[in-house]
């Protein structure tokens, strides 16, 4: 076999992590992006800046404070323990929570751009036709913003696949639980298993290229339809 079982396990884990993170962020990011796109509040600037923070902050900073917050002495850790969930570091769901923070701007910003591009006009027309705001959102905004959702989803997924520093900080490198592909490659390199590292890295490279190729070739066609 081209890849070892451990490598395949790491790849599957990575896909699961990125997939779940993307789904959660679709749910959380859509209202956030909608608010940012439509609001005239003076909080728009500060909130937008907070949303963009993970773009700038080193993953080590994010990982370190997530570890402290989710550990048994942290606020989040005490909450999850009180709920009987245990603590999140070194668990798959801990990685999901971290990835949701880490990839948040990659979901929100393309969506926000897509919502802003729609402008007021279609919404006003829908309102004159007596569509309720919720009705408008699902029947007018969502179809118009489809390319935005596509690129936001792909970017979020791809960015989570590429995550490394945060996972290293809070993952604990457990096979099948937190040892994602990027960490597995790092392990191979450190153990001087360069051939294994090359193989897995090659798979990641092809995967990333295909994802981005899809993103950049699909995008214009979608826009024409819209």
């Amino acid at each position: 076999m081209f890849l070892t079982d451990a490598d395949l396990q790491a790849i599957w884990l990575t896909i699961r992590l990125a997939g779940i993170t993307t789904l959660i962020l679709l749910v959380l990011g859509t209202p956030a992006a909608w608010w940012l796109a439509r609001t005239r509040s003076r909080w728009k600037g500060p909130v937008g800046a907070v949303v963009a923070l993970p773009l700038v902050l080193p993953p080590s900073v994010l990982g370190f404070y997530l570890l402290l917050a989710m550990g048994p002495n942290g606020l989040v850790g005490q909450l999850t323990q009180a709920l009987g969930l245990g603590t999140l570091p070194f668990t798959f769901w801990g990685l999901v929570v971290a990835s949701v923070f880490y990839s948040f701007p990659f979901m929100v910003q393309p969506l926000q751009n897509a919502f802003e591009a729609i402008g007021d006009r279609p919404l006003e027309v829908a309102a004159t036709l007596r569509a309720s705001p919720i009705d408008t959102f699902f029947t007018v905004v969502l179809p118009l913003a489809r390319p935005g959702f596509l690129s936001a989803g792909i970017l979020t997924f791809a960015h989570t696949v590429g995550e490394f520093g945060v996972v290293l900080m809070i993952g604990g490198n457990i096979p099948g639980v937190t040892r994602v592909a990027s960490v597995q490659i790092y392990d191979h390199v450190e153990a001087l298993e360069y051939l294994d590292a090359h193989r897995l890295a090659g798979v990641m490279l092809v995967f990333s290229f295909v994802v981005l190729l899809g993103l950049y070739t699909w995008q214009p066609q979608q826009k024409k339809e819209a």
């Binding site: 570890l67 048994p72 002495n73 070194f90």
Partner: peptide, 8 residues
């Protein structure tokens, strides 16, 4: 660091 933070 894992142990100091109490996470392990």
């Amino acid at each position: 660091q894992f142990v100091v933070s109490g996470a392990a």
